[in-house]
Write a protein that binds this DNA or RNA. Structure first.
Lengths: 227, 227
DNA sequence: ACAGATATCGAACACAGTGTTCAGTTATAG
DNA sequence: CTATAACTGAACACTGTGTTCGATATCTGT
């Protein structure tokens, strides 16, 4: 494959991300991206249909990296419900480190799109272990609803944290998240989710891979599909 | 005040709302509104800065109606934490009745703006009774965080319900909401929020005023401020 | 190193939507 | 009835989008 393709896409993705931190996603025009990336107009449209597709290409690329990382250090130590609760602390830590970017993204109207993406991503990640975890078919609240709810809870705390300039450390946010949601989860799905299990799992897998999020600045080729 | 003002604004708001149910907020152009409302272009801009302001004017008007209704039948029977948990069932019922409109609004990107508005509205409504309810200053989770979270939880269940074509009746949704969030609230704020209190309150105030939401089609003059 | 393929360039274009202006025409309030 | 104020509608400048195409630069495979 042609080296120019990866180079051009990387330039455009970097341009987009740096612009997002400066003026927010909504305010960015294609021309802004072109100027910053120093790329021709027609080149942009040769790669992406529009601004949104450029953004999503970055997310999809990241997802690939993340899953790869999950696979590499997973499997061995990942318990029955490995990838759900235990990585939340890492998620808070990572979000705090990249708070400028996340705040610029999550605050604006555009955030809706990205939050939906994140929601779906976390939902897919959690629904499987949840289903495996719960023996009885009859739960007080359907697993799908409970999973949707707990992901929304996590994202809402993230947003609150960012919008209030992170007045607590990630550890405290993680703690609050557990205090708020775990009792409800137990009531909703039975009481399979034990505090001990979760703490243990958190220690075991503390370096899960959340840090891969938005490290896209340093990577090549955001788009999986061929040109 | 001139009768034409109220008439024109009502026409434009009705046009906007009917268009939202048809194609979603984002896809609507000012010209669409003008055509449907049969109003001149300059007239639109004489009243509203843009599409968003027209939308918000409707919300602000509704808020006025809602608060008025609250005041009229409130005060007498409204307990210490009257207006929070007990009207949630009504909220689900009302949302279900107007599901077409709500789904069109909440689904699209535009939803972000409206959800933020709703979130703030419900937050403001809940934060006062929550503060009054909790004696001790030291709670496991700050009241602001817990309130933000529980409002997000409510909205997330609403959205799930709408997006999945309302597979459960409002009563079931209300029940699930309580099962998911109440244990966490107790853990977070102490255990002042007793199940009994909430059920009692729900019966007492079952006709609180949630039904006023989006009944704006039939009202005059969306905008409180003078032209 | 060379040839063919292909990615990029950049300027021009049609298009859609926004928000403003202003002189002329109604409808309203008092 | 009249002065006031709201509405009209067409024209305008402006910003941004997405497409096209011949010319140029760069890469891959041999």
């Amino acid at each position: 494959m042609d080296r120019r393709i990866g180079r051009t896409r990387k330039l455009m993705q970097e341009a987009l991300m740096s612009l997002i931190t400066e003026k927010g996603y909504e305010a960015i025009t294609v021309q802004d991206i072109l100027d910053r990336a120093d790329v021709g107009r027609s080149t942009f449209y040769a790669h992406y249909r529009d601004k949104d597709e450029l953004l999503f290409s970055g997310f999809e690329h990241l997802r690939g990296l993340f899953e790869q990382q999950q696979r590499s250090l997973g499997a061995a130590q990942q318990g029955e419900h490995g990838a759900d609760f235990n990585m939340i602390l890492e998620l808070f830590r990572h979000t705090g480190q990249n708070h400028k970017l996340y705040k610029a993204i999550a605050g604006k109207q555009s955030g809706e799109m990205i939050l939906k993406y994140l929601h779906r991503y976390l939902y897919d990640m959690m629904i499987v272990p949840h289903k495996a975890l719960v023996k009885s078919k009859k739960t007080a609240v359907p697993i799908e609803v409970a999973t949707h709810w707990i992901v929304s809870s996590l994202l809402s705390l993230m947003i609150w944290w960012l919008e209030n300039n992170m007045p607590f450390p990630p550890e405290r946010m993680d703690e609050m998240f557990r205090q708020l949601t775990m009792p409800g989860m137990e009531a909703a799905l039975g009481r399979k989710v034990q505090k001990r299990d979760i703490d243990k799992a958190a220690i075991v897998k503390k370096d899960s891979g959340a840090k891969a999020f938005y490290s896209m600045f340093v990577d090549q080729e955001g788009r999986p599909e061929g040109s």
